Amino acid sequence: MNGFTYTKDELYKLGTTLEQKACKVFLIMFSMADNNGYVNTSLSDLSKRSGMSITTIRKAIEELKCLKILEVNHNVGVATDYRMKTPISENKL
């Protein structure tokens, strides 16, 4: 279990604000996050877990980034770092 806390209202708002595919990616990444919100995954892993194409995963991640729910750091020559942001209410969904 990770250290994130969401109220029922925040989760409802997330579910009604995000596109369906972005919501699915968020929930998969949220379930994988450590206590600091970091997610050790790849686009291909997310694709396998979600059943969606890598292109669709990229679009979903971009939506999450735009809403400031997810931080993405692209590191040259190494894996991309993903960090979940919480609570949603601070991000003004």
Score class of each variant (00 low, 15 high):
Leu70Tyr: 04
Ser50Gln: 00
Lys21Asp: 11
Ile88Arg: 02
Val39Ala: 05
Thr5Gln: 06
Leu70Cys: 09
Thr17Gly: 03
Pro87Lys: 12
Glu62Ser: 11
Leu67Met: 15
Gly3Met: 10
Lys13Met: 12
Glu71Trp: 07
Lys8Glu: 00
Met29Leu: 10
Gly51Thr: 04
Glu90Ile: 03
Tyr6Glu: 12
Tyr38Gln: 10
Ser47Trp: 02
Phe30Pro: 01
Asn75Gly: 07
Cys66Asn: 15
Ser44Leu: 13
Ala22Gly: 14
Gly77Cys: 02
Phe26His: 09
Leu93Cys: 14
Cys66Arg: 14
Glu71His: 10
Ala33Arg: 14
Cys66Phe: 14
Val72His: 03
Met52Asp: 07
Val78Cys: 05
Gln20His: 03
Lys8Ile: 00
Gly51Cys: 03
Lys65Trp: 05
Asp9Thr: 06
Thr5Leu: 10
Ile57Asn: 02
Leu43Cys: 08
Thr55Gln: 09
Asn35Trp: 09
Gly3Tyr: 07
Ile54Thr: 12
Ser42Leu: 06
Lys13Tyr: 11
Leu14Lys: 02
Val78Ile: 10
Thr86Leu: 11
Gly51Tyr: 00
Glu62Tyr: 10
Lys48Phe: 15
Asp81Arg: 06
Ser31Gly: 13
Asn75Ile: 08
Leu18Ser: 08
Val72Asp: 01
Gly3Cys: 13
Cys23Thr: 00
Leu70Phe: 06
Glu19Met: 09
Arg49Phe: 13
Asn73Thr: 04
Lys85Trp: 05
Ile88Asp: 02
Met1Val: 12
Ser89Tyr: 14
Lys68Trp: 07
Asn73Phe: 02
Val78Met: 06
Gly77Ala: 00
Val72Pro: 00
Ser47Gln: 03
Gly51Trp: 00
Asp45Phe: 06
Ile88Cys: 04
Thr5His: 06
Met29Ile: 08
Thr16Leu: 02
Met1Gln: 08
Ala22Trp: 09
Asp45Pro: 01
Arg58Thr: 08
Ser42Phe: 05
Leu11Pro: 01
Gln20Val: 04
Leu67Ile: 13
Ser31Lys: 10
